[in-house]
Amino acid sequence: MKVRFRGERYYLREIGVAWLCLAPALGLAVVFVFIPLVEVCYLSFTNWDLLRATKSWVGWKNYEYIFKDQKFIQSIWNTLYFAGVKIPLDLVLSLFIAVLLDKRIRGLRFYRASYFAPVVIPVVAASLIWVWLFDPGLGPLNQILGLFGISPSRWLHDPASAMFSIVLFSLWKGLGYDIVIFLAGLQGIPPTYSEAASIDGAGSWNIFFKITLPLLSPVIFFVILMGIINSFKIFTEISVMTPKGGPLYSTGVIVFYIYQQAFENYRIGRAAAASIVLFFLILAITMVQRKLGRKFVDYE
C-alpha cells in the first residue's frame, strides 16, 4: 500500500519495517543519552546531595562554586597540560615511526605488530605495570636512566613530574594506533608523486614536507581531533596510577573531578555542573576543529 507525505510516495510496509528496525536503537538513545543530557542540565541547578537527600533549585550556585574551587580550575589546567604535551609528542613520534616503517623494510609485520601491542591490552592492567616501572626506588626506570647518567625522578610522587609520567604512559599505550593510521595513509599515497618529484631533482626532505605531508593532512587532522577529544575523556590511567589525583592534585583531570564529586563526595549538583562545563568544552573544540578542517585540510 502506498501513501503520500509531503509530496513523496512511501510504501506503508517499508515505513513499518524501518521504524521497527530503529525502535531498539532509538529507545535506548532516548533513555541513556537524551534524557540523561536533559537531566544533567537540570541537576546542575540543584543542590542534590545523595547523603542528605536534599534536592532544591539553587540557580547558578553550583557553577559559582566549581569556578571558585581551586581543584576544578586545576583539573582544567591538568587536562589541557596533558593534551598539550601528549598530542605534539604523539604526532611527531608516530609519524616518524610510520615513515620509517614505510621504507620497504624487512620484518614490517613484526615491527608493526610490536608497536601496536600496547594498544590491545586493557588500560588498567597496563597502568599496574607502569606503577612499578615508575617506582622511584624499586622500579627499573630510574635504574635505566642512571646508566645514562640521568638523575632519578620521583615520577608519580612529585607534583612537577606526575602528569608528565601519565603522558609517557599514554604515549606508550596509544602510539601504535596512530602509527597504523599514518602507515595506512602513507601507503595510500601513490608512489608516482614522489617519483616524479625526485626526477625533477627534489630531495627527500622536500618530498616529505611539500608532497607527503600535505597529502597526509586529512589523516593528521583526524589524529589531532581524536587526540584532543580523548584527552578530555582521560580517566582510567589517572584513577589507577594516582587514586587520589596525585600529589597536590597534580593529575586530577576534569573527569576525575566529576567522578570524585559525584561518587566520593555525593555532590550530584556540583558534579553535574562540572559535566556541563566538560560538555561545552568538547563541543567547542569539535566546532572549532570542523571550521579549521574546512580551511586547512588539503583534500586533493
Binding site: 533513555v31 541513556f32 543519552v33 534524557i35 540523561p36 543530557l37 537531566e39 544533567v40 541537576l43 577529544i229 578530555f232 575523556k233 580517566f235 573527569v255 566529576i258 559525584a262 550530584i268 558534579a271 553535574a272 559535566s275 556541563i276 566538560l278 560538555f279 568538547i282
Partner: peptide
C-alpha cells in the same frame, strides 16, 4: 555527547 558527560544521570536512571 560523550558518556563522561551523561554518566551521572545514567547512573541515577
Amino acid at each position: 555527547m560523550p558518556f563522561v558527560v551523561t554518566m551521572i544521570p545514567v547512573f541515577l536512571i
